[in-house]
Design a protein around this nucleic acid. Structure first.
Lengths: 164, 164
DNA sequence: CGCCTATCGATAGTATTCTAAGCATTGTAT
DNA sequence: ATACAATGCTTAGAATACTATCGATAGGCG
């Protein structure tokens, strides 16, 4: 069980730390993507929500938060920006008046075709020289680490089930 | 060369996106670590600098920025906090009066033994169920993605050479 | 020397994200 | 039915990190 256990000193080298590597990876993707999206007038924060809504329009704010992986207050702020940019409209639910459903505008739907190629290109650059098998391993293990820590942190995140 | 190329639609599922997974991983580590460090009165931001300085005391602010992976203005702010917390002192270089060397205080050095076990524990939790080989793959590929994107972003980051 | 450029650090201003706490609405149990 | 708890969203306030820019020092070259 304690198979992969390491001495504390091991983690004094940042490149041995998955948290550190994840942070750098996240920022590197962010910077590369930012440049391309900015040309279309879209921020990274907006893009994250658009990506989810393109696939599943009409989610509530809470569902959105969990899909995107941000806290609810952050979602509120982000949605304000999206609404001001005329990319989404918010509709109060009829059955449960606490809920607010978020819907894309035609303008936002049109962005899908324009933005996704840039996303694919950033990924192409980032993943250059990696095999399909290696990529599968990386994704599976990151999901596992997220799940391991989420359980420990008592967090609620929406991720695909891995124990079907 | 375009071996792993994917259609744009592939990246509409966030769990296919390395950037998304890296962000969640980073945040999950951060939250878990934060709880433990807070008990010792240390913030995550401070911890990042301490880890580097424990191994290499007396770096300049620019060197620190690159080792830690943050921009210089962020480092300036962070060092102010560290100085106020009496964890570092800053000394102007004699040879080159532009430079400022950052040195740990005894208090900061004492924290090393207290903090590292918590870091190791968070890693133990996060990495549960992963083999040594798998971990090596993950780290190697994240470093590769970071390097791929850094080159493309014209970024300067200090990472171990991988083409000796 | 005297000027131009590069480097190091600091500042100003903004964007992002979080925690903690609050309101309104709904569900539940007595 | 009424009180209590849970849910969904919002607000307030703070921390973190960024871009753009500036001031001071150092190095190179005429």
């Amino acid at each position: 069980m304690a198979r992969g256990a390491r001495k504390p000193e091991f983690y004094e080298d940042p490149t041995n730390s998955l948290g550190y590597l994840a942070r750098l990876t996240f920022r590197a993707f962010g910077r590369a993507l930012q440049k391309r999206l900015a040309a279309k007038g879209v921020t990274i924060g907006q893009w994250r929500f658009l990506r989810v809504l393109w696939v599943e329009d009409g989610l509530t704010q809470r569902e959105l938060s969990r899909r995107v992986g941000l806290r609810e207050p952050t979602t509120v702020t982000a949605l304000k920006g999206l609404e001001k940019a005329a990319l989404v409209v918010r509709e109060q639910s009829e059955e449960d008046r606490r809920r607010v459903h978020v819907h894309l505008t035609p303008k936002a739907r049109r962005l899908r075709k324009q933005l996704m190629p840039h996303v694919a290109e950033v990924n192409r650059i980032a993943l250059k020289g990696m095999s399909e098998d290696e990529l599968q391993t990386v994704k599976r293990l990151l999901l596992k680490a997220i799940a391991n820590l989420a359980e420990h942190n008592d967090d609620t995140i929406d991720l695909p089930d891995e124990t079907p």
